[in-house]
């Protein structure tokens, strides 16, 4: 039950981010969020859109919930949620972890990092340690991604017993990679469209 509500909220947040015109309109944003949550839960044949999404993509992570919530709130408030550079930090971390973790967990080599997530202390300590570093660096959303996953895992709130499934999911990793690419392209475009300063010649040594 908790896992179903959790997944519904995550997907509703994801779909809400695609709806235009929510900036500065918190009441409308919440209404849209709830409307989408209801719409994807409407029974269709033997299942629902939510059932199809859960069947196709399984459960999503606590980190996905935190990131999507932060993006949603930032969109509604028009900023003020992520610290400077935090979006890039989260995207880099999720991409790097995803690129390293999934191939190994799918059998690329003899080491199975997924096995570390079943109850040993190491992965939890690493997640908490990274969370502590993020806290010191002022990256509050990243802290929530990591630190909320730990009690959720300890209490086994979602369907999976494995800590990895609370920390990351393939959609988060892929989304992070796409976000990095988009941010890099935007950054490159900004640099190339910046007007030349008077008296400075491009390419001058």
């Amino acid at each position: 039950m908790i896992a179903t509500v959790f997944d519904t909220l995550v997907w509703a947040l994801a779909f809400s981010l695609c709806v235009p015109g929510l900036g500065g309109r918190p009441a409308r944003a919440v209404a849209v969020l709830l409307g989408i949550a209801l719409a994807i839960s409407i029974p269709l044949a033997d299942s629902s859109l939510m059932g199809a999404l859960r069947g196709l993509f399984a459960g999503l992570s606590v980190a996905s919930l935190v990131v999507l919530t932060a993006l949603f709130v930032a969109r509604v408030q028009r900023g003020g949620v992520f610290a400077g550079g935090e979006r890039v930090s989260i995207a880099v971390l999720a991409t790097v972890v995803g690129v390293l973790f999934y191939p190994l967990a799918l059998g690329l080599g003899p080491v199975d990092p997924y096995a570390w997530g079943y109850g040993g202390a190491t992965l939890a300590l690493i997640a908490g340690g990274v969370g502590l570093l993020a806290w010191m660096a002022g990256l509050r959303v990243l802290v929530l991604c990591l630190v909320l996953a730990l009690p959720a895992w300890r209490m086994q709130l979602l369907a999976s017993p494995n800590l990895w499934d609370y920390l990351i999911d393939p959609l988060l990793a892929i989304g992070a990679l796409i976000a990095l690419i988009v941010m890099a392209l935007k950054s490159a475009r900004r640099v190339s469209s910046r007007p030349e300063q008077p008296g400075v010649k491009r390419g001058a040594a």
Partner: peptide
């Protein structure tokens, strides 16, 4: 953060 981490990691 330290407390939450220690609680989560304690069984391990």
């Amino acid at each position: 953060i330290v407390l939450v981490t220690a609680w989560a990691a304690w069984p391990g």
